[in-house]
Computed example of a mutant assay.
Amino acid sequence: MADELSKVFAALADPTRRDMVARLAASDATVSQLAEPYDVSIQAVSKHLKVLEDAGLVTRSREAQTRPVHLEAEVFDLMTKWIERYRRQAEERYQRLDALLAEMNEGPAAQRHTDEKPPRKGKAS
């Protein structure tokens, strides 16, 4: 799992590949369609796609004369689980810190007020 995750994060480290993934999230596209907005060759786009394919982020199929590229969204589940685990751990640490800060803010002055007994009502002697 860690090796798969490393490949995914490495593939997404490049801004051009992240942009391709974002565009593929909307719909499948051919290599030519993916190359359109970039000032690079089809071969350069193919190399980017090879990295994404090796990471399991995209697949290519054959439809008649075209080879559309398809985003494999399930890979994001792997990333999401990994990120969520550490998000939960961080959240727990923040909650403990919040509790400690709240306790510290109450401090000795607050403690003295809670230790004092309220004045008794009744007859004065």
Rank of each mutant, 00 (worst) to 15 (best):
D28T: 02
A26E: 15
G122T: 07
E4W: 09
E84F: 12
A110S: 15
D3C: 03
G107C: 02
R96E: 09
R85F: 05
A109K: 14
I83N: 03
A99C: 09
P37S: 10
R18W: 04
V75I: 12
T30L: 00
T16Y: 03
L57K: 00
D77Q: 12
A44D: 06
P37N: 11
V51D: 11
E91F: 08
R17Y: 03
R120A: 15
T66E: 13
M104F: 07
Y86S: 10
R17S: 03
R93Q: 12
L52H: 03
E103N: 13
G56V: 02
A99E: 15
R60I: 04
G107S: 10
L97K: 09
I83P: 00
A11R: 04
A22F: 07
A124T: 12
W82G: 00
V8W: 01
S27A: 09
D98I: 06
E103K: 15
A73R: 11
A22S: 09
R93W: 06
A124I: 03
T80C: 13
P68M: 01
R112L: 10
P108R: 08
S41G: 12
K47R: 15
R67M: 06
D39R: 13
I83S: 04
R18L: 06
K50H: 14
E92W: 13
P118F: 03
P37T: 11
L57S: 00
K47C: 06
D98Y: 09
M79D: 04
L52W: 02
L97S: 07
G122N: 05
R60P: 05
T80G: 11
A90W: 08
A29N: 05
F9H: 03
A11E: 04
V45Y: 00
M1I: 11
R60S: 14
L49R: 01
R23L: 05
R87Y: 12
L78H: 07
L52V: 04
A55D: 06
A35H: 02
L97T: 12
S125V: 09
V31L: 14
Y94C: 06
V40C: 08
R87H: 15
M104P: 01
L101Q: 13
R62C: 09
F76G: 01
V45M: 07
R23Q: 10
T30S: 12
L34V: 00
V21A: 08
F76I: 02
I83H: 10
A55K: 05
A26S: 10
V31M: 07
A11V: 05
Q89P: 00
A109D: 15
A90V: 08
A102Q: 13
H48F: 02
R18P: 00
A73Y: 06
G56I: 09
P37R: 14
I83T: 04
Q95A: 15
D54P: 04
T80R: 14
P37F: 13
V75K: 07
V21H: 03
Y94R: 05
T66Y: 06
D19W: 04
R85D: 07
